[in-house]
Design a protein around this nucleic acid. Structure first.
Lengths: 340, 340
DNA sequence: TTGAAAGCGTTACCAC
DNA sequence: GTGGTAACGCTTTCAA
């Protein structure tokens, strides 16, 4: 049987209320007493009972704010499904989720929404942080004020107390190259890379991982060009078309969005000798292209799980006291026509 | 705010005890009253609060029995890790797990262990059922006596009330063939298949899935032979060796165990023209072979998750009343050197 | 600063 | 067959 607050109270010769105050760092308690109780709890190996906590906190439930720059980006559909699923799963455990969706990457908008959530007295915020000094210092402000922060899907430097849940982008890139290496065996392979933006950390990390494997383990690989499409299908069409006409290309690696546009270019230019095509994620459009054999494989990042684990880990953090990780990386799942 | 037993009690003009008796089908209650209360609960959209239930059932915790034929089979290492992880995660929710490991597939041994667990008054049993009439009727006996049963990793016919969690074997086979098709592009491909046993349902389903894709979508594929290795490395070495000497083979598909033995044969016979090798699962030995580039890819079945979900879904079943699925199929995860 | 008591939703036990 | 009450572990509020 595990140790309870009641037992600690008896042992320490105080009331349960006092133990509660000590263990949860509430104020209105003699610091010396608090220290003594904490020590006893430690020695007895106390861990709080989540069922008890959940029940008791029915009166003021856990409030979780979520800010996603998700409007117009179907990748986040599954992330949101994961969040909703967790919300449902923790329904009985006194947990509320406030989901805010944004379009585009406007620093001030994101800042404003963070403040809105703070006004609502949230215990934790999950967000896809924009890579900007202002946002990182805001995040530090939050964590200093005891609001837990999860950086979802994109990481941010200098925000030590916030936790990251998302893709291991470098490994994602390596996996893409590793696949291509298997598809091509020992053949010489000219590769075109289509990225979203050179300003996006994740996209660059994917490219780095990809190039690393090419260098170390895939000697016949030759990256002929890296072009940018800003995750936009029209631009993607143009740059891919240009890439395909200027080079003899055996394979294309899309490390971000705009796949549809790129494929349109391939369909037009490569009538009888189609390059191998590897991309990332499995949005509905990409699934469709896999089925049509227009894409050979895609490297995914468990979007559902990203959403689900965000909520779940906040619940555990708030119940038990600490996150049990600094970073939580998803599996880089390879999907082909037959295992989607 | 969600509906509680107390509210139902007030609404029905009875005590909470009576409502509890009605909703949990306990005896010692007037059937008419029970029916009326159930109807009210239904109308009010009552769902039990898991935190409350978990707390209250501290006195007689949920007992889950697990019987795995896992000794000497490293595949189950991760399954067990998943079970232990769930056990830890549900520690505060009054849940005990009794894990029994067996070696080999002895029907009477399995039967005996089931009875042992029943003696201990378990609420649910998770097992890797042996494909035998005696076991299936035993399982039906259990479910009829209100003991929940999960068929883990291998399914069994005529056990309608037991739930299946595990691999979608046919899809696993399709995925293997789909991969090979990508590796070989349009080239003629002679394939050797090494299976565990033609008596094992899962192995046969994998082969069926594999052949299906060959037929429908991979016209240059030609399966030259299917050999059996009984999941034994020594036998595997012999049959693979024979297969490789008798046929010109471009690819091997291992759909069960004994991969190490098979690879040993490949190492010996195929000095300069190594076939593509695809197998299943990611035991430590297979991971090692992937890293060494001796296996090209493996199709996995989330063993950790199989264990984890078994416990989790029993918890939910017992808390909420019903399983929310009849079958829970794992992702067929493709793993290569770079995403293990 | 501390203790006592009520309450979160459910179950179990003892009276009647 | 039914109701009342204590209990599960924890938090909160009110008094002292």
């Amino acid at each position: 049987m595990s140790v309870t607050i009641k037992q600690i109270a008896e042992y320490a010769g105080v009331s349960r209320g006092t133990v509660d105050r000590a263990l949860n760092n509430r104020d209105g308690i003699n610091p010396t007493v608090a220290k003594r109780i904490k020590k006893i709890a430690q020695e007895l190996g106390y861990t709080p009972n989540r069922a008890g906590k959940a029940l008791a906190s029915k009166k003021n439930p856990i409030q979780i704010g979520v800010i996603l720059n998700s409007i117009g980006n179907t990748f986040f559909d599954d992330v949101i499904k994961g969040i909703k699923f967790a919300q449902e799963e923790y329904r009985d455990f006194s947990l509320n989720v406030h989901l805010i969706e944004l379009k585009g990457y406007d620093v001030n908008k994101q800042l404003e929404k963070i403040d809105e959530l703070v006004e609502k007295n949230v215990n934790a915020i999950v967000l896809t942080p924009i890579n900007d000094e202002i946002i990182s210092s805001k995040i530090n402000e939050l964590t200093n004020n005891n609001i837990s922060v999860i950086k979802l899907n994109s990481d941010l430097e200098n925000t030590e107390d916030a936790v990251y849940i998302g893709c291991d982008y470098e490994k994602s890139g390596s996996t893409g190259a590793g696949l291509l290496r298997l598809f091509r065996k020992e053949n010489d392979t000219n590769i075109g890379i289509i990225t979203g933006s050179v300003k996006m950390l994740g996209h660059n990390q994917r490219i780095r991982g990809f190039l690393n494997v090419c260098k170390k383990d895939f000697e016949n690989a030759n990256v002929v060009e890296i072009v940018e499409n800003n995750d936009d299908n029209d631009i993607s069409y143009e740059v891919t078309k240009q890439l395909l006409t200027e080079h003899k290309v055996d394979a294309l690696y899309f490390c971000a969005g705009g796949v549809i546009g790129g494929i349109k270019a391939v369909d037009e230019i490569c009538k009888d000798n189609r390059p191998i095509i590897i991309c990332c994620d499995d949005t509905p459009e990409i699934k469709e292209l896999l089925i049509q054999d227009k894409i050979n494989a895609t490297v995914c990042q468990q979007p559902f799980n990203q959403g689900y684990e965000s909520i779940k880990s906040i619940f555990n953090k708030l119940m038990v006291g600490e996150f049990n990780f600094k970073e939580l990386y998803m599996q880089n799942e390879i999907k082909i026509k037959y295992n989607i």
